[in-house]
Design a protein around this nucleic acid. Structure first.
Lengths: 101, 101
DNA sequence: CAGAATCCTTTCGGATACTG
DNA sequence: CAGTATCCGAAAGGATTCTG
């Protein structure tokens, strides 16, 4: 990912609707793949997977695989991932204030 | 634009790299189409136009046409547009802090 | 359960040419 | 100067099927 300025750099991590919904969901705590899929309305398995990979690659999310019979994989925010929350909060606040209709 | 929650609503306005660069440029003050085109490195005329239209439609930017011989059009942020600045500032701050290499 | 693989549509933006 | 019009390629994401 080539970035040109800090603003663009940050945007690259939060420009996707699904990414921010995943991050927001994970601020509630560690969750399994399955839980995320159920809670994030409308997300497909493929999109969830690829976005989680992206977040993992960029150290925003940690993936923990449990070597048990039925697969169990847990996702949680890293400290870096958690540090995005003020931005999401501010975006939410702006949205509440300015949403029309 | 159908939105589902405030977070997504806000994201719709800032998810584009070009949109945030335009807004940031306009925080410096009213500017002409031509100036924006020169200052925002790499933006094409088409993209600049369409993004300005988008911003205008959503009341984030005001377009002022002067009826003179050589066309003169000025763009400026509305109060709503200006109200996005804290979010962009926070994104910039996060980028400065976490940008790698 | 947690995915991988494949196919397909939509959207964004780059390139280029033209105009009142 | 400030656009419009057209063509085109890349990338995101939806739907579906299959698997260790």
């Amino acid at each position: 990912m080539e970035q040109f300025c800090p603003l663009e750099y940050t945007l690259n991590f939060i420009k996707s609707k699904w990414v921010i919904l995943i991050i927001r969901e994970l601020t509630l705590g560690t969750q399994r793949f399955n839980e995320l899929e159920k809670k994030i309305a409308g997300i497909s398995q493929k999109v969830l997977t690829s976005n989680l990979r992206f977040l993992e690659e960029n150290n925003l999310v940690e993936r923990k695989v449990y070597p048990v019979v039925t697969p169990k994989v847990e996702y949680s925010l890293t400290n870096l991932g958690k540090s995005l929350q003020p931005i999401l909060d501010q975006m939410t606040e702006w949205g509440i204030k300015n949403i029309k209709k």
